[in-house]
Design a protein around this nucleic acid. Structure first.
Lengths: 225, 225
DNA sequence: ACCTGAACACCGTTCAAGT
DNA sequence: ACCTGAACACCGTTCAAGT
């Protein structure tokens, strides 16, 4: 009835639409963003949104790009490995705060490598890979490996982020551990062995340990770092 | 009118439904799998499918699990690093043949780490990580890093796989390279630098180079391998 | 130029009814 | 126990009509 956060007289714009989309995605995940919920929140009609945005895919791409750009904007000067860790952690935290981002990043990367998200992340990592001393012919492959790890790991952590926000994180990890321990002993000996290790692990520590592992590999292969 | 591949008298079963789902996904991507297209192909009603499968999410999970299980079944004994490369390549090729798998794997991992796909992949990689000589307290983290890389890289290659199937692969790479070369010179110096490198790269080679990079990191950190 | 809102084609899911 | 198929609530998108 009575709008609280916005005056209905405020003009519609692409930025306001994307902003509202991010809020809806944060609140309700991908299912929370609908042209119905969006028109309701913006107090407008469906056609008005289509005037500013081509379709839902473009809207999701714009929301993803905005969040990623903000996450990469934090620039803390340091050694190349430290900067790579900072960039990686920035993306990790962005996905922690916006769990829907993990799936969207995967979609952006696989569907349109010439979009805006792929270049942004590649550029942020790639510059530091160059500073690391990786020779010219190997920079694309090396950067790609780092980006692959970061996105893969961040995607795996999206679930944990959601569970941490809603319920008790310890309960979530316990449930996963319990499920792993109940797996068939002959088919899944390794899973049963690491179930305990999983139970108490820290996502962020594990993520950064993986970054360090890849960095150690780069050093070993290229004697750079 | 006249069914060709199946006799309509053949009984419905969960396996037949999942099999048909995979075929539809392969042919038309995620948009190609619909309860309408599925009932049409199976010459049945919607309710019949719901008798065997709880909902669409479960159907997608079953389709993903089936393809992954088949991909991991190829066991070629060798040194631990060789076996890791073989497992990774098996998943890479499965995604190459079933591009929809990349997104589904990301969803399975982030939504239900206690499902069947996560344990399968973790077990296949983790056993070899143990054989590699990684000490007990580090196996979960190390395996997780490898799996993250594999899934992240495979996801990035899903687009290439699709373009390779339909149009000319060289044309696709050229288009991406061209887009990268047209980026702003001040904001994207690195992307412009590696555009040429991207143009002629081989996905499989690059993927395996990344696996070797992570393996080199594991060796460097744990003196194992 | 920008917005309204009814209408369209389609989706996943349910369920009373059949065999 | 297994299947049918109409019906329901919802979705993204379009478009004639307004200002």
């Amino acid at each position: 009835m009575t709008p609280r956060t916005r005056r209905r007289t405020e003009a519609l714009s692409r930025d306001r639409i994307v902003e509202a989309a991010v809020e809806l995605l944060d609140a309700g995940g991908e299912a929370g963003l609908t042209f119905r919920t969006l028109t309701e929140r913006l107090e407008t009609g469906a056609g008005a949104i289509y005037w500013h945005v081509a379709n839902k895919d473009e809207l999701l791409a714009a929301a993803t790009d905005g969040v990623v750009a903000a996450a990469l904007a934090v620039g803390s000067p340091g050694s190349p490995p430290d900067e790579i860790r900072a960039v990686a952690l920035g993306l990790f935290e962005a996905i922690e705060q916006h769990p829907w981002l993990a799936t969207q990043l995967a979609l952006q990367f696989s569907r349109s490598p010439s979009g805006s998200v792929t270049p942004r992340i590649f550029e942020a990592i790639g510059r530091r890979v160059r500073s690391l001393g990786v020779p010219a012919g190997h920079r694309f492959t090396t950067t790609s490996a780092l980006v692959s790890y970061i996105l893969g790991a961040a995607g795996q952590n999206a679930a944990n982020a959601q569970s941490a926000a809603h319920a008790n994180r310890a309960e979530f990890l316990d449930a996963v551990s319990d499920a792993w321990e109940e797996l068939d002993a002959r088919e899944y000996p390794f899973m049963r062995e690491i179930a305990a290790e999983q139970r108490g692990h820290d996502d962020r520590e594990q993520f950064l340990a993986g970054v360090d592992l890849v960095l150690a590999g780069i050093t070993a292969v290229h004697r750079a770092g």
